[in-house]
């Protein structure tokens, strides 16, 4: 039966101030039931204070085939890292 149900991706925020992280996926007939299934599957040990569910079909993902043009050019561009600056004294959280 769950084979007929669409797939949902579940994002859980573990506590206030943090952002939602991907926790897993599940099947559910609609969004409201997906939220409830997510509560039962991913927050039963107190893992979360907020849940998002997103239809898996609504997510556009980068493809493994595009990995090189997408990500490799960034590997040798060290000047994009902020390592060429003198950090003024007294700045603690940079």
């Amino acid at each position: 039966m769950s084979g007929d149900w669409p797939l949902w991706e579940v994002f859980v925020r573990s506590r206030r101030g943090l952002s939602h992280s991907h926790a897993g996926s599940l099947h559910a007939p609609d969004a409201q039931m997906a939220l409830r299934n997510a509560r039962d599957l991913f927050t039963r040990r107190g893992e979360g204070v907020s849940i998002w569910v997103v239809p898996a079909a609504a997510i556009t993902a980068s493809s493994p085939d595009e990995k090189d043009p997408f990500f490799e050019p960034a590997a040798d561009k060290v000047y994009r890292h902020p390592t060429f600056y003198e950090i003024p004294e007294g700045v603690q959280h940079l």
């Binding site: 039966m1 769950s2 149900w5 599940l26 099947h27 559910a28 409830r36 299934n37 039962d40 599957l41 039963r44």
Partner: peptide, 12 residues
């Protein structure tokens, strides 16, 4: 149960 997700819900 009719679906794995529902089985967990009922067991909970």
């Amino acid at each position: 149960a009719p679906a794995l997700e529902e089985e967990v819900a009922l067991a909970n």
